[in-house]
Amino acid sequence: MASPLISVRNLRKTYGSGPSAFEALKGLDLDISEGEAVAIVGRSGSGKSTLMHLLALLDRPTVGTITLDGTDTSRLSARQLNRTRNSTFGFVFQQFFLNAQATVLDNVTLPLKIAGASRRERTARGMAALAQLELDDKAGNRANDLSGGQKQRVVIARALINRPRVIFADEPTGNLDTATGGVVEDILFDLNRREGINLVVVTHDDDLAARCDRGVHLRDGLVAAREEVAA
């Protein structure tokens, strides 16, 4: 098998210092292959959010390396980190984080705006992403006027807009009822299967975790058990 897309070695993250220091991750190793859907599960305080933040390059580890596509991410400048997060990653959050006042289209094209795309390109790609999620008729609506499921689909459209290689989803169905949650899950796994986009899902939901290729169970900052794939 080819070298993994994301490779984590001896990852440690300590918050604070001195006697009050808290070690959230205690030397963790993890490989995520191209096109894989990985669920990070564990109880709260197990370090799964910390791991996702580190993988998503939102934070830097205290010790250890994260290699993304063969590049040691600790060597990247702030500018390169920003560009990587903008173009390689997509984010889906439990609480949507949509700008309630802005239109659906403006919300979806925010990453493109940050990347510096022209208005024409933003509109074209935004509409395409919305069409993919069957929301193109809602493009002009304000984000606030949508239902929960629609909002989460807007968030997925936003995560897709830059054609990312990895989508980080933090409790993507946490705020949705079972039926809508199921639809959102279907969309995410469909993207994973058909477009080869990696999924890194942080969740409490065992059903969601079970649909992933593999679950990484964290306990007290270490991988407790995992279903190994052929290395």
Binding site: A56, L58, N82, N86, S87, F91, P111
Partner: peptide
């Protein structure tokens, strides 16, 4: 706060 955090997560630089 959240909006700024989101934009930063999506790669908006501190300067911007």
């Amino acid at each position: 706060t959240r909006e700024v955090g989101l934009m930063k997560a999506m790669g908006l630089s501190n300067g911007r």
